Lab assay of single mutants.
Amino acid sequence: MTEYKLVVVGAGGVGKSALTIQLIQNHFVDEYDPTIEDSYRKQVVIDGETCLLDILDTAGQEEYSAMRDQYMRTGEGFLCVFAINNTKSFEDIHHYREQIKRVKDSEDVPMVLVGNKCDLPSRTVDTKQAQDLARSYGIPFIETSAKTRQGVDDAFYTLVREIRKHKEKMSKDGKKKKKKSKTKCVIM
C-alpha cells in the first residue's frame, strides 16, 4: 500500500485542523484551538488504489514558523489553505509557496490551493482571484467548507493525484537520464 505524506499549511484560523478532522473523523470542530502540530493517518481508496494518507496539520501562528522547514522537508505534497473571508490569509499563500519551493529546492512541488469556509456569506476573496492565482502557479484550486464537508475529500484526493503525477514524471525523467548515460565512448 502506497503511503502519501501530505502537509496542510496556511495562516492561523483558516480551518486547516477543521478540514483535516472532517476528512479523518467526519465531524466539524467549530471551536478554535490553535494547533502546534498534529499528525493523522487514514486509509482510503483513490482511483481504485488503496493508500495510506499521513497528514500533518501544522501551526499557522507566526511564533511556530521555525518548525516549518522541518515538516516541509518531509512532506510530499501540500494543501495551501486560505479562508475566503480573510484576504490576508490569501496573500500569505505566496509566502508559504515560496518557502516550500526553497526548502524542497524545487520549482515543481505537488500543491493544491484550497479556499476554505465557502459556506460563509462574508467572502472577501473572489473565486476568480483564487483561480487566477492557482493557474499562475500551475496547481489545482478547490473551494471547501469544513463545516458542510463540501470539497473536503476532493481537496485531499486531488493532492494525492498531483503527487502521483509528480512521481510518474520524475521516474520518466530518471529513465531518460539513465538511457543517456548508457551511451559509451570508444577510443581507438
Rank of each mutant, 00 (worst) to 15 (best):
D105I: 05
Y71A: 15
E107Y: 14
Q99D: 03
L79A: 04
M72P: 02
D108Y: 10
R68K: 07
F82M: 14
M67Q: 12
D119M: 05
K88L: 10
C118V: 09
V103G: 06
L79G: 00
R123F: 09
R102V: 05
V109N: 01
P110C: 03
C80F: 15
R102Y: 03
R102P: 01
Y64D: 08
K117C: 14
S106T: 11
F78T: 02
G115N: 03
T124S: 12
Y64I: 03
F82Y: 11
F82Q: 03
R123H: 11
I84E: 15
K104H: 14
R73K: 11
D69W: 01
D108V: 06
S89L: 04
V125W: 09
Q99A: 07
R73W: 05
R68I: 01
Y71N: 14
E98I: 00
N116V: 15
E63P: 09
M111I: 11
Q70G: 07
A83S: 14
C80Y: 06
S65H: 07
H94P: 01
E63V: 02
K104F: 11
R97M: 15
T74W: 07
R73E: 12
R102G: 07
S89F: 15
T74P: 07
L79C: 04
S65E: 08
P121G: 13
K117M: 15
F82V: 10
R73Y: 07
F90C: 10
K104I: 10
F82D: 02
S106V: 09
I84M: 15
S122I: 10
L113H: 02
E76N: 15
D108S: 06
N86E: 12
G115M: 10
V125H: 09
I100N: 03
L113I: 11
D92T: 09
R123E: 13
Y71H: 14
V103F: 15
T74A: 12
S65V: 04
G75F: 07
I100H: 01
E98Y: 01
T87R: 10
K101V: 05
L113Y: 04
Q70P: 04
V109G: 02
I84W: 13
F82L: 09
R73V: 07
M111F: 11
V114F: 07
E76D: 15
I84T: 14
A66V: 12
V125K: 10
Q70W: 12
R97S: 08
R97G: 04
D126T: 07
Q70F: 12
N116P: 00
R68D: 03
L113W: 09
A83Q: 13
K117Y: 14
T74I: 07
Y96S: 02
M67R: 04
V114M: 10
A66F: 09
S106L: 11
F78W: 04
C80I: 14
T74M: 10
R97C: 15
R73G: 11
E91W: 06
G75V: 13
V103R: 11
F78E: 00
R123C: 12
K101A: 08
A66R: 06
M67N: 06
G115T: 04
V81E: 11
Y71G: 15
C80H: 03
A83G: 14
P121Q: 12
V103H: 12
I84A: 15
D69R: 04
V114R: 01
S106E: 08
A83N: 15
V103L: 14
N86A: 05
T124P: 10
T74N: 12
D126K: 06
R73L: 07
V125A: 11
E63M: 03
K117T: 13
R73T: 12
V125I: 10
F82C: 14
N86H: 04
R123S: 13
P110Q: 02
L79V: 13
D126W: 05
V114L: 11
M72C: 11
V103M: 15
T74E: 14
F90P: 04
D69E: 13
D126V: 06
C80S: 02
A83D: 15
E98M: 02
M111D: 00
T124H: 10
V112G: 00
E63R: 03
D69S: 04
Q99S: 06
T124E: 12
V114W: 01
D108I: 04
M67E: 12
R68C: 04
Y71D: 12
N86P: 02
